[in-house]
């Protein structure tokens, strides 16, 4: 059978190979439940579990790098914001000019950082461990339009290609004498010299690609055949349903609680 590439054939032997939708359900429901619960021990547990999972999956370095790029500025911003200025706080730890360091403010910032960190890590572990072609195939098989799958897959594959092209354009402009100095005007001019050729070439490419896709029947209605087999099992289907239900229950429970206390 031509459809089973070496990877798909090796699927059942590797226990780690799950259906991407199961992974998505797991990451999504973890994020929802952590947000709904809003308790820092749970956030901390999710954080540790996500780190452990990514270490086991061998993606720890990339996940941590990506998470740090998001969470470090966010944490700095939150600590500065709530640590120094929290008018609602009453327990003043230190006072410094207009800034008041309050215990409530620091606690608020800390809980927020932990909770957001847990959600970000859970979702990043998913996106760094999922196989994009599998995800696209699984989505199309579920009746999600081919168009969404196309946009997702095309973006993820275009990203490195476009970054490389932007680099080449910068090199070409530099070889023609572009020097970026610290001044604002020079930066704006440099931005224009690089952005205009980049966007022009991208629009031009997109036109060619659209003609090619149109010729292959992208806009045609009707069912499509996928040659990629995505592993799935009754167990995983059940697990997905349970995860989604638990997440929905957590959401409803939280809203009912809030409604009762308000």
């Amino acid at each position: 059978m031509t459809a089973s590439s070496p990877r798909t054939a090796a699927g059942p032997d590797r226990p780690g190979r799950l259906n991407p939708l199961t992974l998505l359900a797991a990451a999504g429901s973890t994020a929802v439940i952590t947000t709904a619960a809003g308790s820092w021990p749970l956030s901390l547990t999710v954080l540790a579990a996500s780190l452990g999972l990514s270490a086991a999956g061998g993606t720890a370095r990339r996940v941590v790098a990506a998470a740090a790029a998001i969470l470090v500025p966010l944490s700095l911003s939150l600590v500065m914001l709530h640590g120094l200025f929290f008018p609602e706080g009453t327990t003043v730890l230190a006072e410094w000019g207009p800034g008041r360091v309050t215990a409530e403010g620091l606690g608020f910032a800390g809980r927020r950082i932990l909770q957001l960190g847990a959600v970000v890590l859970a979702l990043l572990v998913f996106s760094f461990s999922v196989s994009v072609p599998d995800l696209v195939a699984a989505l199309s098989a579920r009746g999600v339009q081919g168009r969404f799958a196309f946009v997702l897959a095309s973006t993820l594959t275009l990203l490195p290609a476009i970054s490389a092209r932007a680099r080449r354009i910068r090199q070409a402009q530099e070889s023609r004498g572009l020097v970026v100095t610290r001044g604002l005007l020079s930066r704006v001019a440099a931005f224009r010299l690089q952005a205009v050729p980049l966007v022009l070439s991208l629009v031009e490419d997109a036109g060619t690609r659209s003609a090619a896709l149109e010729a292959r029947g992208l806009s045609n209605a009707g069912p499509r055949t996928s040659y990629r087999e995505v592993p799935d099992s009754r167990l995983q289907r059940t697990a997905r349903a349970v995860l989604v239900l638990v997440a929905a229950a957590a959401l409803v429970l939280r809203l009912v609680q809030a409604g009762a206390s308000a």
Binding site: F150, L158, I162, V203, A206, S210, S219
Partner: peptide
């Protein structure tokens, strides 16, 4: 999404990459 012509559809990934980069 289903109503967009192909020439617009292929530009969407390009726009997303521009946004992200």
């Amino acid at each position: 999404l289903p109503t967009l012509p192909a020439s617009t559809l292929v530009l969407i990934p390009v726009a997303l990459v521009l946004n992200i980069v």
